[in-house]
Amino acid sequence: MPTLTPPPDQTSDAAFSRRSFLRGCAAFGGLTALAASLAPLREMGDYTSTEQFLQKYYKELTPDDMAKVIARIEGEVQKEYGIRPHVRDLKPMDGVEFVYCLNLTRCIGCRKCVHACVAENNQSRNPEIQYIRVLKMPHGSMDVEKGDHTYDAKQVPEKGFFYMPVQCQQCHNPPCVKVCPVNATWQEKDGITVIDYDWCIGCRYCEAACPYWARRFNFTKPEIPKERLNPNMSYLGNRPRKQGVMEKCHFCIQRTRAGRYPACLEVCPVGARKFGNILDPESEVSYILREKRVFIQLKEEMGTSPRFFYYFDK
């Protein structure tokens, strides 16, 4: 075995200590640089809490767990907005399946529904999040690519156009639910597809999967003026969302599961919006779907089978 002659500088004590000194400097410098690069994290603030971090999946929460969760949410809202909200976890009612019908002959494109929705559902005002998008469509076409999203007319309706509001279609076969990697979004018994904002990991796969562009992501911490906060809240509905989670229309779950109409329906000045229980043959929506000769499920060819129907008067 040939012997290895060590390089001369290795044997000298001075060189050795110089080397370890340099190593020490490098290690110290490295750690300082690491700390400096992580410095922005000092502004993390109320990003999450231990309680929220460890919170169980919605469907695994016992009533006691839910009471604690609600207390936590109420506390957080009060701390942030100075208002004690009333948060409930309303469950679907037996024998109820919600359906929405929208009369395209009547809609005048005033966008009052958009604003009523924002106010009711505590959507972020900065950046703006809206669940309803109204398309101005040329007569004769249902091709959304011909729609104008940003029309800004002094007066509506404009001649030669009709208006088509689009929001979550509450599909029977929702692609968004299928793709969610953590089951943070699911379809409830009454047909409403909901999101557990405390379970969503913010991957935005559902947003890519939705053929109706119905989902909205909180790209930053939502901002809602204190005086505009709607304190009547529901866990799966309009409670304020956190940064980094998905949200969308939930048929005003905090209202409709308590026997009221959705906010967009109540505000509609022309009565274009109809909402009700399809399992009840006496309901308005049952009547419409029974009697109207033509009604449309948007992008029917997707096989999503929406619970949202567009119809015409004549």
Binding site: A33, L34, A36, S37, L38, A39, P40, L41, E43, M44, Y47, P127, G202, F217, N218, F219, T220, K221, Q243, G244
Partner: peptide, 16 residues
């Protein structure tokens, strides 16, 4: 580390 710093900013302010 520059990338880590940028990511720390993203964590704080969000994907905006």
């Amino acid at each position: 580390l520059l990338g880590l710093n940028a990511y720390a900013k993203q964590l704080v302010h969000g994907l905006i």
